[in-house]
Design a protein around this nucleic acid. Structure first.
Lengths: 115, 115
DNA sequence: AAGATACTTAGGAGATCAGCTAATTATCCT
DNA sequence: AGGATAATTAGCTGATCTCCTAAGTATCTT
């Protein structure tokens, strides 16, 4: 279940834009068409569509065209690599804290023994 | 404990680069100087320093200069807004699943009653 | 068939990004 | 003082980003 090296880049970059995060927010409540999605934004449609395309390229979203309408759906599992990276990061940090903690314990025991 | 509107952008964008994530990875194991940090990278030092500056601007990292040496330290709490956003996202999605679930329950009960 | 609707393509402007080299500054060591 | 070390500044390049307008295509609807 390993991801390609650049996948995290693409995911984090996809999330690094307020319009795209707002789209995801909306989609977490259920699928929507491009025009429905675009309604809250003052942006021109081609600009907006580029954001949808970017989300699609990142895998966070899937789209399907039926007739002239394109429906966009959230892919909630696509967040997993992001969460995993954050969790690993925290694990490393906490591992460090644990070691520091253990070290302090050792110091204190030494102190008990020595004095 | 609210964050400024663009803060999430800055955080996600800071995380959207492999060099910067590698720096954070290293720093989770403890502070390091700029030169120490830069060792694993083939990049020229000014290019590398720009990444450190970017991390600093995002708040993920703090730096302090002592003599001619600048030491870089992870700020683990800075990840919180990112985690929060992801958690909210999941909560909305799961809320939706719950409602769908409740709806399905309702349908099934109606079916039990009706047939 | 004609008009409305929903995207889509093409192309371009201006900003930001990630990298580089060359030169500078500030500190430390001898 | 003078050289080595650590970081910094300045300035440049090519790529990518985000937005735009104008025009095109495909699909309903009447």
């Amino acid at each position: 279940m390993n991801l390609s090296p650049g996948q995290l880049d693409i995911l984090f970059q996809a999330l690094g834009d307020p319009t795209r995060r707002a789209i995801l927010d909306r989609l977490a409540r259920g699928p929507a068409t491009v025009t429905e999605l675009s309604a809250p934004f003052e942006m021109a449609l081609p600009s907006f569509l580029a954001h949808v395309r970017r989300l699609e390229a990142s895998g966070l979203v899937e789209t399907a065209k039926d007739g002239r309408v394109r429906t966009v759906t959230l892919v909630p599992g696509a967040f997993t690599p992001v969460r995993s990276w954050l969790d690993e990061q925290r694990a490393i940090w906490e591992g460090r804290l644990d070691r520091l903690d253990a070290y302090v314990q050792t110091l204190m025991q030494d102190n008990d023994d020595g004095t």
